[in-house]
């Protein structure tokens, strides 16, 4: 892949990069940092990408690693309750999110990330397995658990209305 092609890929993937980073970091400042580091690393490692068809999964994996670095640095690994509170605060600042989006954001990262990559970013099971470096079976299991939890959470939220 040439640098120009990588640049085009990154520009075309802007929304994917932001939405993936947003599910992990919540703060737009942190998202900006992670995405910028990702771009820098991607260009510096471009010669190691031997197969262009994996370029997007490669890019997302770099991004996920960068998000984890930021989380480790700032010790922002909060409890599930903390994540729910953060989600509510962030949501109130901007727009009115659907119950489904709130429910997805309250999932643990282990379940939330596959849901985002599968239903929003349209990666398939195999690609998600490569990105997360787990087996395809693990991805399927996590998606099934996430669906089950979302059904529970949404049912509870409907009952509360």
């Amino acid at each position: 892949m040439t640098k120009e092609q990588l640049g085009t890929l990154i520009l075309d993937s802007e929304r994917q990069l932001y939405s993936t980073a947003k599910t992990m970091l919540f703060s737009d400042q942190d998202c900006a940092d992670a995405i910028q580091e990702t771009i820098v690393k991607a260009f510096s490692k471009i010669d190691t990408l031997r197969n262009d068809k994996y370029a997007k999964t490669w890019l997302i994996r770099i991004l996920i690693n960068e998000c984890h670095t930021i989380l480790r640095k700032s010790s922002k690994l909060v409890s599930l309750e903390g994540m729910s509170e953060r989600t509510d605060i962030e949501a109130d600042k901007t727009t009115d999110y659907s119950d489904l989006y709130r429910a997805v954001n309250s999932l643990k990262e282990e379940l939330r990330l596959p849901v985002i990559l599968y239903y929003i970013e349209d990666f398939n099971i195999k690609e998600i397995a490569r990105i997360l470096e787990v087996t395809e079976g693990a991805v399927q299991k996590r998606l099934a658990r996430a669906r089950g939890k979302l059904k529970c959470d949404l049912q509870e939220s409907e009952a509360m209305i």
Partner: peptide, 20 residues
């Protein structure tokens, strides 16, 4: 679930400019 795409906020302008 696929409609979650519509719920993801738009990329903030400053991030869009930074990427470019």
């Amino acid at each position: 679930l696929e409609d979650l795409k519509n719920d993801i906020p738009e990329t903030p302008e400053f991030i869009h400019m930074m990427i470019k």
